[in-house]
Structures are given as C-alpha cells and as structure tokens.
Design a binder for these strands. Sequence first.
DNA 1: GCCGGTTACCTTTTT
DNA 2: GGTAACCGGC
Length: 658
Amino acid sequence: MTEKKTARSPAAIYQTLETALNPAQREAVIFREGTLLVIAGAGSGKTRTLTYRVAGLVEEGVSPGSILLLTFTRKAAMEMLLRATRLLDDRCGKVSGGTFHSFANSILRQHPREIGFRNGYAVMDRTDAEDLISLIRKEMGFSSKFEAFPTKKTLMDIFSRSTNKCLALQDIVYNEYPHFSSAMESIFRLYREYKARKLLHGFMDYDDLLIYLRDLLKANPNLCERISAAYRYVMVDEYQDTNKIQAEILYLLSMSNKNVMVVGDDSQSIYAFRGANFKNIMDFPVIFPGTKIVRLEENYRSTQPILTLTNEIIDRAAEKYSKRLFTRQKQGNAPLLVDTQDETEQSRFVVDAVRGLNRRGIPMKDIAVLFRAGFHSFNLEIELARENISFIKVGGFKFVESAHIKDVLAHMKLLVHPDDRISWLRALSLVEKIGPQKAQKIYQTLSEDGSGIPGLIDKAYPSVIERHIGGIKRLFLDILGKDLGVWQIGDIIVKYYSPILRQKFDDYPKRMKDLEQLVLIMEQYQDISEFLTDMTLEPPNTAFDNAMAAGRDGEDRLTLSTIHSAKGLEWHTVFIIWALDGKFPSLYALANEEALEEERRLMYVAATRARENLVFIFPKNIYDRNERLVLDQPSRFLADINDGVLKKHCTGYEDSLF
DNA sequence: GCCGGTTACCTTTTT
DNA sequence: GGTAACCGGC
C-alpha cells in the first residue's frame, strides 16, 4: 500500500464529523460500549459510517489489531480500511478484517489439535468438495441409472443447506428436494461417508470452517474467553446475509466485550440460497438485549425518480421491510423499460446506448450491465468484443474454478499436502494411459506406505505406464529439494502441463493466457499454502480482477456483473438485462413464495445501484425448452408499475436515450 | 478390465 | 461449456 500518511490531527476528524455525516451516521460513529444495530438502506452512507468509526476508534488509541471488521469479501474490507487510512493514518491498515470464512481459518490454523486435525487441513473449494462426493458416490455404487439420485452438485447443495440452515438432512430433502425422497437412505449414508473422508484426509469445506470455529469456541470456554478478549470492538457488515452459525460465532466472540456493531439492510438480503436469513438482523436485538438501533434512511446515491421506482418495487413485497428511503436530489431521468425482439437485439441496444453515453462524456467505468446469472452476458460479451468495447466481468464462473487452473493447482497442492487424494487422482489422471482406476491404485500404494511424492519418483511401474509417468516424475524431481519461490514452482508446473493443455482443450491459447495470469498472481506470495488458501477463500472474482491487472489498469472499462457481485457498488448508469419474467425472476423461483421474495429483493438491489440512469431490458421472444413455453413478458416486479414511474421505451433511439 | 472418445442434456446466485 | 452415461478398442 503506497497510501500517504495524512497529517491530520485527531481533533480535525471530529470537526469533520459535523459536516461529513448526518445525525444518524454520527450517532453510529461515536457509539462506544454495548451492542449496536445499524439498519442502513441502499446508498445511505453505510461504508462511510463504518470507515469513520474505524478511524475514530484507532484515533482514540484502540489498538488496530483488537478491532475486527467482518465483511462479505476481502475486497470490501480492504476498501474500507484504505478509506480509513486516508482519513487518519496507516494504523488503520492494521485492523483485522476479512470474511467470516477467512477469520475462521486464521483461528483454526492455530488450534489444529483441539479440532481433531492433528496434521492440519486443506480447505476445499466447491469443486474439490464435489469431486470428493463424486468419488464416494461411485465407490458406494450410487448412480442415477436405476433410481432418481442427485448429481454431485445437488448433493453438495443439500449438504450445505442442511449445515447452513441448521436443519436435518431429511428436512432439506423432503421439503426442498421431494423428488429425491426415495433416495433419502442412500443420501444419508453418502453424507456420513463424506464427513468421515474429510476427517480422514484432512479436508475442510467452506461450511466446516464455520462449524469448527463455532464448536471450538463452544467447547473451550477458556480459549473463547481469550479470543473474544483479544477483539475489543467487533463490526459486521452486510449482516442481513449472515446465517445462524455466523450469528452464533458472533455471540461467542462477544463473551468478553459486548462491543458488537452490525450493519445491514433486511430488504437487501439475497443469500438465502446459502442459508442466510434476513430475520437474523431482526433477531439481533433479541440475542443482545439492550441493543441500540440506528436507522440510516437518507439516500445519497440516486435521484428521486430512481428511488420512487425502487421504493415501489420493495413496497410490493409480501414481507414489510423496516424503512423507506428519501433523497434530496429531486431532479433526474425516469427509469426506462425497453423490449427487444431477441437476445441479439438486446445486446445491440446495450452496445449502442453505452456508445452514446460514452460520446456524451460518461466514462465506461461509470456504466454497468447487471444480470441475474453469469451466463446471461455471453451474447453481450461477443457483441462488445466485436465492437472493441473493453469490459471487465465480475461474478459467474471464476477462473480458479476452470479445469486448466485446477489441474495446475492440483500439482501444487501435492507439494504441501501429500495425502491429498483428490489432487493425486486429478494429477495422475492427466497422464496418458492412466485413468481413474490406475490413478486410484497408484495413490493407494503411496498413501499406504506414506511415501508421498518421493515414493512416486522411486517406484518402478509396468513399462506401458512407466513410459508415460516419467514426465510427472521428472516434474517433481525438478521441484523437490530445491529452494524455489512460489511462482518459479508454478512456472515449472505450467511448462510440464502445457502439452497436456494443448491436447485436452481446443481453446488452449486462451487458457494458456489464464495460466500466465496465474503465475503472475503467484509472484505476490512467499508461501505455497498461503497462496493456495487465498485461491480458495478469496479467489479473484474475474480473470483480471487482481492487483496484477490493477497495476496496468488505467483503462476505462465497462463493468458486466452478476447482481450478487454488484452488492455495495454503484454506477452513474445501470443497465439490467434479461428483465424477463422467467429469467428474472427465474423459473426455479416461481413455485416457492420465499424464493420469489428473494428474487424481488435481488431486483431491488440491482436497481438501487444506479445514481442517474436506470434501464431495464428484456428480449421478448425467448423459447424455454425446459418448460416448453415462450417467455415474452417483462419481469413481474416491473410489469404493474405505471408509466409515470417506469417509462416504456422503443428501440431505435439509443443515441439519445437520456 | 480399463482408457478415452462420443453423445445427450442442462446451465442461478457465492464463501 | 460442463457432466454423466455409453461404447469401441486395446
């Protein structure tokens, strides 16, 4: 961080409080002892409030390390601490910040024995966990051939929901996946096996991090006392998106000091699919009696016409939410609703409109296109590339999840975790003539005699195999016992892997670039496990979203983002594509009242990202093969809003849209 | 028995 | 573009 130390005296910060913050914000900033709940509407200066509070605490002499700021992404935490640093000085950068998951990981790493992972553990990402499930599924002989049996993805969903909602597996299956009820017995057996394997091989999935932390704190009162005493002030952002386990952890963390502040907005809760419950925020004063509640209702982001619309969207919700936003920016353009013939026309419309805005002085980085699901932007991405408009895409598929990245990382994981069965199978299966069976056999012998990588190198194999396995033996010979940096090791692995890449993927030039990118990221790390943990817990959300790219990122780029990844952000102009009933809300959500309500909140989050201009677009001749029907209506969240609030717009005038 | 190529089908959101 | 079942060939 090259942040300059600003020579601003503490008194000056408090002087600026009067002018920089409104009374409600100020109240939250200067609140000290006890629990505080801040209900902060969209654009109400929530980040500003947290930033000032952090700076204020540090300024008063609270040790930065004893302040804990839990946010939704590490990026959000870094951003806030950076702002606090600007406000005060470098000490703010030393505040402990991150996600619940990374916080859990940092604590658990220090207590491997207490949690039953004597030799430490590796964190599995979603794909690793699914691979393990798939392996077990095959071993146990469950397949969908003879009975309705869930795929690995669905199994993981079921397991994860059960954990995060604190409900029995049966409840989840019978209520949310009734069509798999007949397989309940098998699912349960598989689940038990999955848990056993994780313990046996030293793996944790994302959910385990939270569970083990909670259980560690619960089972060891002395430790809990010590840890909670270490954090004098705890703050949690986006509290509406936390779940029951996280609430319990927070409660345990408050054992010694009851100075807990949570900030959130019940109408922006969009992670129920992951076990989050917006009622958490309402329960907070119940769990912590005597909680002070502060409401931030003045919106500083959007114009009145945009707020009028967003208020209408959320007013139609079945559940009544706790506030209504207002603004002093009365003037502004009416939000637009545009229908196009098909997806291509939708993309062209966006391209033309973006061009028009850009010509009239709106920088690309002040414009965003938002959508419900990652793949909704594929067509637009092609059009943008054709038109030479550069963009950054956030959300959807992460590049660390793609097969080629996982292949390279698997080799690296073996260096620090030689008992990693998933990685062994993955790496060995890449060798010609070695498939799942042979890989399994090789792994078995290495694991039984505990010889790991050296065992692989020393062992002689039947000549057919030996001819092909020589490559991977040489790879590890090149790495082991040498004093190499993370990126050098990565580079060696990539060189070994590139012939496989060519053979395996038609689009290898593109993937090769990803691998080069990966090696660039590695340059920032001194330690392999640290690198691997970061790739799992804080993966770059796009191929270009990392410090490396940011360095040469002077370029003015358009943002494409899933709505989930746009949370907390804002742009001058926002386009929301696929505002088509059946896509948004998704057809999956229609059967379920709660899911539908979450879709509505999602639409609310999307629309409240806009400062000046807001445009909804839907292609109206979309045939859904699944349901065998034509989707041609605008999203039901917009359909009945009258013309004065949401203006219908015809295509063909994109140049003078506003 | 096992590898590896082929085909049919489906595709939400994220730590 | 990914997953899982299928089948031909060694």
